[in-house]
């Protein structure tokens, strides 16, 4: 397996007086898909921001272990919920963005062509983001992330802005892309079906302040999984039982606010 081991030690975080994360400790093994689930507002995205160095935690530390491949240009790479594509660049231009000033023009073109093919976007290379559907835009987001050959992918609810059908289709593609790339992947979602479909380690966070409530391991390869597999359905049901009361309480808090 390639990829980094990502280690979180006693992570806490607060926005002024509001504690959102409390004493989070976990390890994502190289090549493993770790899924973070929990009710709205439990600090999943905040934790992902801390993991990738985009947020400074109030307490604790994040470290990585392992060797990064020579051609890796950005070891910890995000895939964003809102795609974060530049509307003034074509699909190929968006994918090339993180490669600029790091690779020669030819090497850049080769790598862009490679990830376009991997994500089925070759014929859309010259399209503008506004011309693409939500699902296609997120494919571009994935292609851009893969173009830097990451050692760890950090995916923040990458399918939540999409309709249910597109989500199901992309989920299948994600699982095969992630399995092929073999990178460590941290996947944040509130969708439990996605969690059991992709996760090898599922970390359940409690409602605010987010604490680790349970860790579930699924020792089956991602490839070949279906969200309708009986064992996965049972795990999904267990996860829902764990989260349901917290999710309802979080929803009430949001209404009160």
């Amino acid at each position: 397996m390639t990829g980094l081991r990502l280690i979180l030690n006693n992570i806490s975080h607060a926005y002024r007086d509001l504690t959102v994360l409390d004493d989070i400790g976990l390890t994502a093994e190289p090549g493993e898909v770790l899924v973070l689930v929990g009710p709205s507002g439990c600090g999943k995205s905040t934790l992902l921001g801390i993991m990738g160095g985009m947020l400074r935690p109030s307490g604790g530390n994040v470290s990585v272990q392992g060797n990064v491949a020579e051609d890796c240009l950005n070891p910890l790479t995000y895939v964003f919920q809102d795609f974060s594509l530049l509307p003034w660049r074509t699909v190929a231009g968006n994918i090339a963005l993180p490669l600029e000033a790091r690779l020669s023009r030819q090497a850049r073109a080769e790598r862009v062509a490679e990830v376009l093919a991997l994500t089925g976007l070759t014929e859309f290379a010259k399209a503008w983001p506004k011309q693409l559907s939500g699902g296609m835009r997120q494919r571009v987001g994935i292609a851009r992330a893969l173009a830097v050959r990451p050692a760890c992918l950090l995916m923040d609810e990458p399918l939540s802005a999409l309709d249910a059908q597109t989500r199901d289709l992309l989920l299948d593609e994600f699982s095969s892309i992630i399995a092929r790339a073999g990178t460590t992947t941290i996947y944040v979602t509130h969708n439990l079906s996605e969690a059991v479909r992709l996760g090898q380690q599922i970390v359940v966070l409690s409602r605010r302040p987010g604490r680790i409530r349970a860790t579930i391991r699924i020792d089956r390869p991602i490839a070949g999984r279906s969200a309708r597999d009986p064992d996965l359905l049972e795990i999904e049901e267990n996860l829902w039982r764990m989260i349901r009361d917290d999710a309802a309480a979080a929803e009430r808090e949001r209404v009160d606010a």
Binding site: M54, N74, L76, S84, L86, L97, P98, E100, A101
Partner: peptide
């Protein structure tokens, strides 16, 4: 701001962020 954070997350320099984003 999301676009700028995206640029930072890919390790773009300040100059590149200003120029490209």
């Amino acid at each position: 701001r999301g676009l700028i954070r995206m640029g930072q997350s890919f390790g773009l320099s300040t100059g590149a962020i200003v120029r490209t984003l």
